[in-house]
């Protein structure tokens, strides 16, 4: 069964396999819809439990169990070989979901464009970018399929479609992303201005600490402030870069580890509740 699902296929066999999978999924969904709610819930609980049990069992079962002695997979157990196909299935579901996301974007942007609502220019820019990138990207991808040598690939990149692709991706997209990222520099300044006002003892302590750490990370501190202290001298602990390192690696690290410790306990508890379908609330529905 595992080999039937995971064996790579090509051509008409692949098309039939995809069609059959879609059909099987549609039939399964139709069957689920036809069932009464209480049975639908129990099927969902069962699938959730089995899926979680697979990952838990793969982690808990020691390496080498169910694997022939001397095998190259000595660090795996008999469930490990199914991790990749299960992970690939998740990636496929995500790929399908991208199509759904594009439909949503088209619906949200289509209405202002068709009805001339304020901001229709932004919607026009969205459709222009979507169509341009899709057409150029797919054309370049198709051209690259036939380019099996480095010279052929260079020829595709030098052709119109290659240059358009790089104009859109490297020229527009990458630069726009970098621009938004660069906004952080200004936002950090404005956020720091608000954060470092001396309104309380804690704020004062935070400002002094931040100032020391900042000095330790710029050339001014180690070079001009404490550069006169020789390395290895008994007083070298007072060098600003050492103080800065100590602050980051001792009290700061201790606090971060404490936070992570609590986070991980929360993750374990919530994962347990989701796995056993004990989670209650607005997502999982109220208790029956």
């Amino acid at each position: 069964m595992g080999a039937f699902i995971t064996t790579p296929r090509h051509g008409i066999q692949l098309a039939l396999f995809v069609l059959g999978s879609v059909l099987a999924f549609a039939l399964a969904m139709a069957a689920m819809h036809a069932l009464p709610t209480r049975y639908r819930r129990w099927i969902t609980v069962l699938f959730t439990f089995v899926a979680g049990l697979f990952y838990l069992a793969e982690f808990v079962i020691p390496a080498g169990v169910g694997v022939p002695a001397g095998s190259s997979r000595a660090t795996d157990n008999f469930l490990s070989k199914y991790l990749d196909p299960v992970g690939n299935a998740s990636a496929i579901i995500f790929a399908v979901a991208v199509g759904m996301g594009i439909l949503n974007l088209a619906r949200v942007n289509g209405a202002p464009l068709l009805r001339g609502r304020p901001g229709w220019q932004n919607s026009l820019a969205f459709f222009a970018g979507l169509i341009a990138m899709t057409v150029v990207g797919l054309t370049r991808w198709h051209a690259m399929l036939g380019a099996t040598t480095p010279a052929a690939r260079r020829a595709v990149e030098a052709a119109l479609v290659g240059r358009l692709y790089h104009l859109l991706f490297d020229g527009f997209y990458s630069n726009l992303g970098g621009t938004v990222f660069a906004l952080l520099a200004f936002y950090i300044v404005s956020a720091s201005y608000r954060a470092f006002r001396l309104r309380s003892r804690e704020a004062t302590l935070m400002m002094v600490t931040a100032f020391i750490v900042m000095l330790g990370n710029v050339p001014v501190g180690p070079t001009y402030l404490t550069g006169w202290i020789p390395e290895g001298h008994w007083f070298s602990f007072a060098k600003v870069e050492h103080v800065s390192d100590w602050i980051m690696s001792v009290p700061n690290m201790a606090a971060q580890r404490a936070l992570i410790f609590g986070i991980m306990m929360g993750v374990i508890a919530m994962s347990l509740r989701v796995w056993l379908s004990l989670e209650r609330g607005h997502f999982f529905g109220q208790e029956d």
Binding site: L259, I263, G266, A269, R273, R280, G281, E287
Partner: peptide, 23 residues
């Protein structure tokens, strides 16, 4: 709301016994 308080959110907001017990 930081760290583990994030995971306590549903217990705090809904006061469901299961969630409180888990917390």
């Amino acid at each position: 709301i930081m760290a583990e308080e994030f995971y306590a959110a549903t217990a705090y907001l809904t006061r469901e016994p299961v969630l409180l017990g888990s917390l």
